[in-house]
Each structure stands twice: as structure tokens, then as C-alpha cells.
Write a protein that binds this DNA or RNA. Structure first.
Lengths: 106, 106
DNA sequence: TGGACATATGAATAGGTATACAGATATACT
DNA sequence: AGTATATCTGTATACCTATTCATATGTCCA
């Protein structure tokens, strides 16, 4: 057991992994990310429209995603284009969405 | 935009993906899973010890993980051995933990 | 059967979080 | 400067969740 314990990731790593998962644990944010998986780059207004949520909600969601480096932002004039931060994010999303599709949950 | 919308996963899939992420979004549960990543099979008592939490908390955590098919259980006498449900889970955990290690969060 | 060990459950409390509305900032254009 | 558009922020409310203690269930062995 002691051996296992020393092999565990440190508290900081665990905490930020948990935070990352937490950011992904919301249907609204997943819809936003799923939109970005198919279109690569979208502005807040369009993300709100495709994900079916208010722009305020979308903006709040995007801030969380941004500060946790799940998406990146690029400004062009007054509109801001968002995209997935890296392939890493794409893989995890793909894996979990695929897994979720087959699960006749509970 | 309409095109994007039709390409999005259905509500049920999104909901269960969110649920899965939610289950993973807790430090205690991550420690439990990290233990299982290095040891493959552990009982509740040992998981509680390595993850540094009470057995009750561990049991509650394992129930969540079990009902969301993140871990599987195998009984042997009065002790129950838990392990990761599949390689899928292992990959996601590995990806996110790796990502978390490099992130000088916020 | 009775006692010990392993795990599970119920319920309560404390803390966290998503969403909405209202209003603020920032950029563009005339 | 003033107006319109795009995005962001503060705040409140309503909901969700993690942990704990106490207790229950299940399994073994004498």
C-alpha cells in the first residue's frame, strides 16, 4: 500500500485534474465544446445559438473553459473566436462522448 | 450554424457524458482511481488507506464510480476488489492527469 | 449462534455551482 | 461624440454534492 501511495500524483496535480473534469461536467459546456469539435472556430453569439443557451450563460461557460485552458480565444474586431485548446481536449471529449453513447446509463 | 447543430450529440449522450465527467471531478475519487491505475485491483479498506480517506467516504465514492461504470467490483469472501472498468477510463485519466501536471493552473 | 471483520447505506450539514437578469466594457462605424 | 453590436461581469437564487457519523448488511470462523 505504501508503494501505491508513493506512486500517486501529488495533491496539486489531482486538484487541477479534478478542476478540469469539473469544467467538463456540465451539459451546456459540453454542447459548446461539441460545437467546437465540428467547427473549429466559433464566436460567442454562434456558440450560444448552436448550444441553445443565452449569451450570458455562454460567456460564463467560456470563461471557465478559458481559464482552465480547455478553449482558446482569438479576437477579430469586436467578435471573439473560440476553439478547442489542443488535440488532448479533443481526444478526451471524443472518448467520453463515445463511451456515453453506448452506455444505457444506470 | 444549423449544420453544426445537427452534428451535435443528442441530449441523452451529452447528459451522460456530463455525468461521467462529474463523477471524475472530485479529488477523492481521482485518488481512488489513481491507486487503481497503479495496482489494478484493490479492496475498499486499502483504497481508503492509500487515498487517505474514511472507509465510508470511499464506499460512497466507489458506488458513484460503479454506477457510472468507471470501476468494476469482484467479490472474494467478504472483501470486494475494485478495478478500472476498461482501458477507455485509463486513457482519459492518463490524459487528464498528464495535462494537469504541466498546467501551472490559472 | 455469536462475535469479528469488510463493506454499504441513510440522513444531515456545509459548501459549491449553474443560471438568469441587469448592467458594464469594448470595438466599430458614421 | 454617439449609437449599435459583441462580449463580459456582478449578484442573487435555486439546486446539487461531498463528507461525516451512526447504523445496517453481509460474510467468515469458532
Amino acid at each position: 500500500m505504501a508503494l501505491v501511495r508513493t506512486a500517486l500524483p501529488d495533491a496539486e496535480t489531482v486538484a487541477s485534474a479534478a478542476a478540469l473534469f469539473g469544467v467538463l461536467s456540465d451539459p451546456s459546456r459540453i454542447r459548446v465544446l461539441a460545437s467546437l469539435m465540428v467547427t473549429d472556430e466559433l464566436c460567442v453569439t454562434d456558440l450560444a445559438a448552436t448550444a441553445g443557451m443565452r449569451e450570458s450563460t455562454t460567456s460564463h461557460a467560456l470563461r471557465l473553459l478559458r481559464t482552465n485552458r480547455v478553449v482558446t480565444a482569438r479576437r477579430e474586431g469586436r467578435t471573439i473566436y473560440y476553439s478547442l485548446a489542443d488535440e488532448h481536449v479533443r481526444h478526451v471529449l471524443h472518448d467520453v462522448l463515445a463511451h456515453a453513447q453506448h452506455a444505457d446509463d444506470n
